[in-house]
Write a protein that binds this DNA or RNA. Sequence first.
DNA 1: AAATACTACGAAAACGGTTTCGTGTTGATA
DNA 2: TATCAACACGAAACCGTTTTCGTAGTATTT
Lengths: 342, 342
Amino acid sequence: MKRKITLKQIARELEVSISTVSKALKDSAEISEDTKQKIKAFAKLYHYRPNNLAISLKNRRTKNIGVIIPDIVHYFFTTVFRGIEHYSQEHGYNIIACVSDESLEKEIINMEMLANGSVDGFILALSAETQKKNEFDHLREILDQGIPLVLFDRVTDEIECDKVMINDQEAAFLGVKKFIDNGRKKIALITTEDYFSVSRDREAGYRQALLQFGLPLDEDLILKLPFMALDESAINMFFSTQEVDAVLCVNEIFAIHCMNLVQQKGIKVPEEISFIGFTDGILSKYANPGLTSIAQHGFRMGEIAAKMLIGKIEDDLGEEEEETYHTEIIRSNIIERGSTIN
Amino acid sequence: MKRKITLKQIARELEVSISTVSKALKDSAEISEDTKQKIKAFAKLYHYRPNNLAISLKNRRTKNIGVIIPDIVHYFFTTVFRGIEHYSQEHGYNIIACVSDESLEKEIINMEMLANGSVDGFILALSAETQKKNEFDHLREILDQGIPLVLFDRVTDEIECDKVMINDQEAAFLGVKKFIDNGRKKIALITTEDYFSVSRDREAGYRQALLQFGLPLDEDLILKLPFMALDESAINMFFSTQEVDAVLCVNEIFAIHCMNLVQQKGIKVPEEISFIGFTDGILSKYANPGLTSIAQHGFRMGEIAAKMLIGKIEDDLGEEEEETYHTEIIRSNIIERGSTIN
DNA sequence: AAATACTACGAAAACGGTTTCGTGTTGATA
DNA sequence: TATCAACACGAAACCGTTTTCGTAGTATTT
């Protein structure tokens, strides 16, 4: 078991100084060709690699970025993660991945752990609890320390920083419009409790569409389900008391689950009830019938988030301009499948 | 924008030495109560946190572990990741997550990047290409440097290290047995090309079961699909030329896909053809009918991998015993759903 | 021959901590 | 009163780099 070799050891072995070795390996003009050759050969022979920690300490830059997501067993977040990873990788950054588990406390702990030199910046989607409690001091502190932060998908207006999201309201609007174009009249919305930024926006789009196209707004057609545990009986109750011919769901799981329950009742999809979901994950694709779904382009979202963050990180190295923040909106689009009529 | 405060700054401000500050904050008995109080109060006021990099450099331990998985948009790996993250978090370790994208080269690059001081150990599932090419020098080098490594799921006999996997062969055996118990006679296996360790083991279990229960072994009933891109026409061809009444698939996607295609032909599942898949992911659960599936207990696998790795890491700090390696087998079990007859 | 300019290298500080080993000042002991 | 511990603190080395600056030795210029 051979420990990694260091500059010091090379220096001792070759009877030169550490600085000489360091410079030689960087091909500095200060060092004679002879010496450089000797040192390089020796370094190669012993597989010398500079120690990342030492370099990070010296540069005050880690080339790591912290990604904190609420849940990783979740198609959308995973896809975004993939996009972040892809862009970062190409630009020489590593990802330290943390899962907040929808908990504010874990979100805080994770950020604090990483903020002490472990990462150069954060990419984050707010946990459910964070959004519910409207607690953002931990984010403010990070920003105060000059650590860049990019929020994606689950964002908040209370924090000024870079953000990436989709046009949720418009997307929901277009979903409802599609139902209306297909002649649907009783359009339900199945969503989470109010505290999610995305759910609020999607609900706004739903309402806007009904209003704009002159359909009555029936509050009973809006079902708000608890986010964490799917409540089957609530869903069943909803579908036996309400008469609906189309359902917009704010996420894939809700949609698939409802579609299954409805089909079990013998109701035909899409003939009697149409469904549209958000996320366009793997479930939508393989469902029976396929679920028409609003693609959130997670991969692109991740890439853009990473790009924005790395941009900020590397800008911070240059002149200290006053901060400007951007909000990038990714246009979603509807992927049509069997759960709606073409 | 206030930069993080350091020991040096506290020392200067309070007109004591750096060592005194360091000791005071660790509540060392060497420092008088008075001074300690003063320093602690000051540190608290300014939110002092030690710099992780400096500590890591000093201790030669990062409290980071590198996790390299072939693909993160994949229920099983994600679940394992979750388990790793959970255990690690509780033990004060962070995860640096890399995706090898089924590529040997990316696997190597990732490992080399992280091996230079960024992590204390690795948890890894081999990429497809790595298994195909049987190239493991990068793993040997890691181990040579004394960096602990745990392999999970996609493993190899060529490398001696800790491993975690499920009883793939037995699981496949039991799957086939279930078909046979249900009176099925023409049992197909849909698998990947040979180079995956898990696929080989599962195929072995399939063959063993047929043999043991006296069913003829028909090589034409084994369909090997390319791993990366699902080949629909090959599947269609298979089902129109072969007469089968049960199908064991080595993963969830294959199973769901085949089940859908078969159903499109108007064949009834499970009456005419039964299906069993591996992985028991989200697709199995929401498929129509639900897919009977072999649960791989990814979360537990992740926890165990992390436990083994962290154990090794922290043992290495103690006496240098000769290395012993373990292979942990997690017992899988069948989750029954509508795709098989009860 | 003296002044100057390169060349090729080393010493040392710095990044931000931890830790070992002094050491000056007390107060108690012989 | 000389000796010794205990106390409270600081200096310095160390982790592994990078980088600035200084300086011998040689080569060039005037």
